[in-house]
Design a protein around this nucleic acid. Structure first.
Lengths: 230, 230
DNA sequence: TCGGATAATATGTATGCACATATAAATTGC
DNA sequence: GCAATTTATATGTGCATACATATTATCCGA
């Protein structure tokens, strides 16, 4: 065993927090005191406390000291894996099918959201992702052909557009949104269900600096659950 | 401006990553070289690189060096605030209403999931959260009265059970799941909508060590969207 | 040639020190 | 009293150094 590491101290403090040694909102001992307690340098305690603060368990203020978070602003980290990996991770067979692929002018609201000029064409794609042959998610997507010119000629039979983009194109920012929608007839048909069924949907839009890359709506099969731990 | 901080270096490196200086999966210069480049100590570069690795942009291995993540940014951080704050944050008026509150034996599957013995009673609650008088989310919950005995006598008129628990009871672990469901007649009635409407639902269960604390299903109003940035 | 021991190397981490910085608390001025 | 100013203090950060540790790369013998 080496010296006490900041990980050990983090864990020790975490245990004390969970044990209820300090109330929510209460001040905990200062770095110097803890360093003394654990017999290590203040730097090490600092590191442990910063980690816990980053995890949302502590709130730190200069001169104000460190306290237990009053409202554990619960953060859930959601992993958004490539669909193929998500499916293969559960030991199932992944498959995908290209339903539509054409260059066209997006409807006005979409063009505006993507900051594309009026009358500018973009690549529209519809892909069905399958899990053990069964429909898993229906992928409706717009891609900015000017930001990603290679996509126009890419073969999307071996690799889905989803994976193709993830593997090739970096992005600097993006956002995701989750919602529940009633299946339209087209989506219902693709997912082999009935119109009006409640579907879990994920919208994702990504940017590279100021250039729009892609926006996608994934309609998951009925019964899909997105889970995560706190 | 003081000396170069690890934040500055993180940002500089982030810019270089986004600028495409290195391909996905490529090796980036070592800590020593970067320290030399930026004219700072290796410790400082280490800190910056560890931060970027924590954000999922880099993958580091001892002796193996640091590389750009091949499958980038697949993590979204979701904030799950207290409903009241979420509503008040958008300048709206929060309200809540207690529909049901009784001690009873939970149905077998729930009792099992909560690791409660057979025939053990738990506190069942139904609460409607409102935003500007309109139904916002319907909160169906089980609370372990043995882990949180004070809850049995708590007045839940001023403060909703949601907030009451968050403010008083720490937890050590938990999980969340999101899904889309069709409104049952009871839920539809509470949310003032029609049976079968697609609703966004969040299930959350929390534990303090091995003791079950609470499990809740929140049925959000039709049209609700949960969003986050990447 | 192959497999195992050995060396080289990039990252991981602790430490003591110095100084920066925000801000709570005390003090001063009116 | 009350507002403005000063002081004290806890955290934030950088640096040089030393050593730990996990791999990769190399070497060597059978």
């Amino acid at each position: 065993m080496p010296n006490t590491s900041h990980h050990d101290i983090r864990n020790a403090l975490l245990a004390r927090i969970h044990a209820g040694e300090w109330d929510l909102g209460a001040l905990i001992p200062g770095e110097a005191q803890l360093a003394d307690e654990y017999g290590c340098a203040r730097t090490t305690v600092n590191r442990a406390l910063q980690t816990l603060a980053g995890e949302g368990l502590l709130v730190r203020k200069r001169r104000g000291g460190t306290r237990i978070t009053t409202l554990p602003a619960k953060q859930a980290r959601l992993d958004i894996p490539v669909l193929r990996e998500q499916i293969e991770a559960q030991g199932a067979v992944y498959g995908h099918e290209l339903f539509a692929r054409k260059l066209k002018i997006p409807p006005a609201p979409i063009a505006k959201a993507l900051r594309l000029g009026k009358g500018v064409k973009a690549l529209y794609l519809e892909t069905l992702h399958r899990c053990n042959q069964q429909p898993y998610a229906f992928d409706v997507r717009w891609v900015n052909q000017h930001a990603v010119p290679q996509v126009v000629d890419a073969s999307l039979t071996d690799m889905s557009i989803n994976e193709w983009l993830v593997r090739r194109v970096p992005f600097s920012s993006g956002d995701v949104a989750f919602s529940a929608v009633a299946a339209t007839s087209a989506v219902a048909a693709a997912l082999d269900t009935t119109t009006g069924t409640a579907l879990f949907a994920m919208d994702r839009t990504t940017w590279l600096h100021d250039d729009f890359i892609t926006t996608v709506t994934l309609y998951y099969h009925p019964g899909y659950v997105l889970s995560s731990s706190l």
